[in-house]
Design a protein around this nucleic acid. Structure first.
Length: 784
RNA sequence: GGCCCUGUAGUCUAGUGGCAAAACGGCUCGUUUACACCGAGCAGUCAGGAGUUCGAUUCUCUUCAGGGCCACCA
């Protein structure tokens, strides 16, 4: 033997890999309807990540948080916790094109989807690996992709159902259009972007008398699209022009001057030009006054009016400004910064262009959808407000058609002759109408297969239905939980609530938990800023348990600053668990966990404290307050169990008689096991390691993660135990202030009333504070 | 312009109508039969103002600062 003892240390990486394989091999997280306790299964509508690149730290943060909840409920009553990937969108399309060096537009949709599925089959397992490494305890055998046959079938079936319910209509209408992606998009896909702009005041002229009518604009390229000029009916500067015509500068157009209260007297020059279409306001104004629109942009964002035909919007703007200047038609110009709407996927400014699109009617049920939202429990509560705000601010029905190539096809045909709509039968789904020929039912002419595809949200709003279809709908809506981030309340949460209501008049789930995001130095992490942390590296360095421990550090919905010190704290906690367990079983060895006839007063009261802990931690998990759970277990384990209880029982464990030992052994065994179970949802690997090493043989259950959640029994009093700890603290303080060793022998005097209270505990006290004698008197410590 | 969230030790986070808390960091001691990835102790904090209250860090209003969502975007 060496002079210095060798200390076993915990190798997180190796241990975590071992248990990850064990869980997979033993199918610990396999969904089993029979596994339900109390007749219930807690079902989770897992967010399907987009397969692209790697898991980022935001994923690690929010998936950890939902996994705490999942693991808690698994132990409590059993869970349905599927996994899925979202592969039905632009990011996947781009990735598949890149990996296979193809262009989706040069292939048929069917072929491209086939290629997607093939490619995904290859890359998804590696992608999911990060989730498994993090310990996310889904049943990965219950796995969907939002582009596979089943998801397409459900998505198209949803379309058919809503069509038959009269919820879907097609309309030729100016809708939000992205000239970059060349597709219509939904209100929810808009993003603000602040841009510098030139604010020019231009000379319009009154047709009758040639007088100037100054109008300010940032978009002179819309001049040829001008269809009217508005002034406020009370604006005395202009009332005498109402009813006359104005001449648009540079373009030989005459437009009516109309009175409209929406023209603000104080804004700009007080005169407003209405164009087809500059913004949503123009769309409404033109309809209100029944004006004839004159559209000057093409779908790819170019002008269609000579002499500017074929020029991009920005180029045309510059050229027109120059021509205006040359013609002396600019009165004033200034640089301003203003906010414009851009497409969230590409950042390009949107336009309003009249196209034929499919819509789901939702504006008429806004109130109903808010009511549905209120029936769901939002965690944290205020997230409901964001939902309400969004729904009450909706001004457009849901545009569900996209003029793109890749995606779930809109399943219908239209008769070329009579316009009759032909729908597929349910057993034909999934179908691509561009590949299947149909004839009109009425006039027998051939019908045109719809070329548009569905908005990706039209499919991902069905994740509850898709997930439940994988278990033959043995669980019905509402599911228990939707975990998600707050940036997609207006899309994923809203559309899912809308669809469940429209299809079944049901809630999709009873609870929504909304995670915050990760910041670095209080700034939002983003690739463009370069301030990103890779969770893979963190797991390599500290282990997944530490990363999860960190993710449990802030309460749900709060942002959390990434700090390395938090990872160190997690690692230390793991080491402490590891060492304390080693100590316990160094002494217990083959102890079988049987309850002795009688427990000592200290042991009994310590168990009462443990019972209080169980109660608190359970409640915190039930309320999605995992950070409270973590804090409570951490504090109990470190301060009460390690710092005090272990010190108190040490002497008995080493030197006690049979009864004293048995009592201590039983309590050590039970309390350590309970602490492990309580923290297992947050730190699944270390708890499994300790469970397997020491408890499995007696407990018989294959894994700690499918053990029964601890039950809190009625807690008895803890007065004497608390007093003992209190005295212990005072003695330590006295020794520390006297610069004495904790081993220093002392004479301890205790207040008389306390001496009576402590009469059963004096022996314990004597050994733990190393008192040579305990006397009555005031509480004080004398050094021997 | 409307709505929502946040502001607590040097740092990062809990928390409460009645002594302000943990962790990391700092300082002082100690220890080697679970643990130096240790133990004990010490110092240090509720953004500013007003109100409600016996009492406010907590509730209300307001100012300031940070963040988010929506609207506007002539």
């Amino acid at each position: 033997m060496e002079g210095k003892k060798s200390v076993a240390s915990y190798d997180a990486k190796a241990v975590e890999e071992k248990w990850r394989k064990f869980w997979e091999h033993e199918k610990i997280y396999k969904f089993d309807l029979k596994s339900k306790k109390k007749g219930k299964i807690y079902s989770i509508d897992t967010p399907p990540p987009t397969v692209s690149g790697n898991m980022h730290i935001g994923h690690a943060f929010s998936y950890s948080q939902q996994d705490f909840i999942a693991r808690f409920w698994r132990m409590k009553q059993g869970v349905f916790y599927p996994f899925g990937t979202d592969d039905n969108g632009l990011p996947t399309e781009r990735l598949v094109e890149k990996l296979n060096s193809v262009k989706s537009r040069e292939m048929s949709r069917v072929k491209f989807i086939e290629l997607c599925l093939k490619t995904l089959k290859k890359i998804t397992p590696d992608f999911i690996e990060d989730w498994k490494k993090l310990g996310v305890s889904c049943d990965y055998d219950i796995c969907y992709s939002t582009i596979n046959d089943n998801a397409r079938r459900i998505s198209q079936k949803s379309f058919l159902d809503l069509y038959k319910k009269g919820r879907i209509y097609k309309k030729d209408f100016p809708t939000i259009w992205c000239p970059e992606c060349q597709t219509a998009i939904a209100q929810a896909e808009l993003e603000d972007k602040e841009l510098p702009s030139l604010f020019s005041t231009l000379k319009f002229k009154i047709v009758d008398n040639g007088k100037d009518l100054p109008i300010a604009t940032t978009r002179p390229e819309l001049l040829p699209a001008c269809v009217a000029v508005f002034v406020h009916p009370n604006d005395k500067r202009y009332t005498h022009f109402i009813g006359k015509k104005a001449k648009v500068p540079l373009f030989d157009l005459e437009v009516p001057i109309l009175a409209d209260k929406s023209a603000e007297i104080k804004k700009g020059t007080g005169v407003l030009m209405v164009c087809s279409y500059g913004d949503k306001y123009d769309v409404e104004a033109i309809h209100r006054h029944k004006l004839q629109p004159r559209v000057v942009f093409t779908y790819d964002g170019k002008l269609s009016v000579e002499p500017y035909g074929g020029m991009g919007i920005k180029d045309a703007r510059e050229k027109i400004l120059k021509d205006l200047e040359d013609a002396g038609l600019i009165i004033e110009q200034k640089n301003i910064s203003h906010v414009v709407n851009v497409h969230d996927k590409c950042g390009v400014g949107i336009e309003f262009l009249p196209t034929e699109q499919w819509f789901i009617k939702i504006l008429d049920i806004k109130k109903k959808l808010i009511e549905q939202g209120k029936k769901i429990k939002w965690h944290p509560k205020f997230m409901l407000k964001r939902y309400e705000n969004w729904v009450s601010g909706l001004e457009w029905d849901w545009t569900i058609s996209r003029d793109r190539h890749f995606g779930v096809p809109i399943p219908l045909w239209e008769c070329k002759k009579c316009g009759e709509i032909i729908l597929p039968k349910e057993n034909e789904l999934p179908v691509d109408p561009m590949q299947v020929k149909k004839n009109c039912i009425k006039c027998k002419e051939s019908a045109r297969g719809e070329t548009k595809v569905l908005d990706t949200w039209a499919t991902s709003s069905l994740t509850p239905q898709i997930a439940l279809s994988l278990i033959n709908n043995k669980i019905k809506l509402p599911m228990s939980l939707r975990p998600q981030a707050h940036d997609i309340i207006r899309t994923w949460a809203f559309y899912t609530i809308a669809k469940s209501y429209l299809h079944e008049k049901k809630l999709p789930w009873n609870n929504v938990m909304v995670s915050g995001f990760v910041t670095l130095g209080k700034e939002k992490m983003s690739k463009s800023k370069g301030n990103v942390i890779a969770p893979q590296e963190v797991m390599n360095e500290y282990g997944a348990d530490s990363l999860r421990f960190w993710a449990a550090g802030s309460k749900l919905g709060e942002d959390l600053d990434y700090q390395e010190q938090d990872l160190i704290a997690g690692k230390k906690f793991i080491t402490k668990l590891f060492n304390a367990s080693r100590f316990v079983f160094m002494n217990l060895k083959d102890y079988n966990g049987k309850k002795p006839k009688k427990l000592s007063v200290v042991d009994n009261q310590f168990l009462s404290k443990l019972n209080l802990l169980i109660k608190d931690v359970t409640k915190s998990f039930e309320e999605y307050e995992y950070s409270k759970s973590r804090q409570e277990v951490e504090r109990f384990f470190w301060n009460v169990f390690c710092d005090n209880y272990l010190e108190i029982v040490k002497w008995r464990v080493y030197n006690g008689n049979k009864a004293e030992k048995e009592s201590a052994f039983y309590v050590l065994y039970q309390s350590l096991l309970t602490v492990l179970k309580l923290i297992a949802p947050i730190m699944p690997f270390i708890t499994e390691e300790i469970y397997q090493n020491y408890f499995r043989k007696n407990e018989k259950i294959k894994s700690i993660h499918i053990c029964e959640w601890p039950k809190s029994e009625k807690a008895g009093k803890t007065d004497e135990f608390d007093l003992l700890v209190d005295i212990l603290g005072k003695v330590r303080q006295a020794k520390s202030q006297a610069n004495k060793s904790m081993k220093a022998e002392i004479l301890l005097s205790i207040e008389k009333k306390n001496k009576n209270k402590l009469k059963d505990l004096l022996e314990d006290l004597k050994h733990v504070v190393n008192a040579v004698e305990i006397k009555e008197g005031r509480l004080n410590v004398e050094f021997a």
